[in-house]
């Protein structure tokens, strides 16, 4: 077998996926260019901005720093997997209500970092939120309305915010 292309199978936003990918491709590249989901963004390509954050097996990771090959066997969630047919995910609604979105380029990454945090800790305090999103840079908001969005979602979180 020529390992330059790799066969991977994983779950993406609840649906099984199976594809051939270049061995050194990043998860971000595969998700955006082979799968065509554009929610995860490339802001820096080197782990410095968090715009590409996705959830892999419940943990927030920078998809630009992860080999797509490492998604094999994993359960992957991107921002497109948050909202349901019935509408926005509670976290998304909270960002809308509390003006946590300005240009919105950082938004998907922030949602994924927060979503992963709430899975691990349904009621984080300010410091814990800060630790979880410090890898998500936002140049527009100064973070205040982002904290407000998250903290309100936490307040109303009876578990569904991590679903």
């Amino acid at each position: 077998m020529d390992p330059k292309t790799v066969h991977i199978e994983f779950t993406l936003n609840g649906s099984p996926r199976s594809l051939e990918i270049p061995g050194a491709a990043s998860a971000l590249w595969v998700i955006r260019n082979l799968i065509g989901l554009k929610g995860a963004k490339e802001g820096c390509g080197i782990g410095e901005c968090g715009a590409c954050t996705i959830e892999v097996d419940g943990k927030a990771v920078n998809s630009c720093l992860m080999l797509a090959a490492q998604l094999d066997g994993a359960d992957v969630l991107t921002v497109e997997g948050l909202a349901s047919e019935d509408g926005l995910h509670p976290l998304q609604s909270s960002f809308l209500e509390h003006h946590g979105v300005q240009c919105g380029f950082c938004t998907p990454g922030l949602l994924m970092s927060t979503h992963a945090l709430l899975k691990e800790n349904p009621h984080p305090d300010h410091a814990q939120v800060s630790k979880a999103i410090a890898g998500n840079l936002c140049r527009c908001t100064g973070y205040r309305q982002i904290f407000a969005s998250i903290e309100d979602a936490v307040k109303h979180n009876s578990g569904e915010a991590a679903q």
Binding site: G47, G50, T53, K59, A60, V61, N62, L65, M66, S113, L117, K131, A132, I133, A134, G135, N136
Partner: peptide
């Protein structure tokens, strides 16, 4: 160390 996303891997 770095950020949470990086620490995770």
């Amino acid at each position: 160390f770095a950020s949470k996303q990086i620490r995770n891997v």
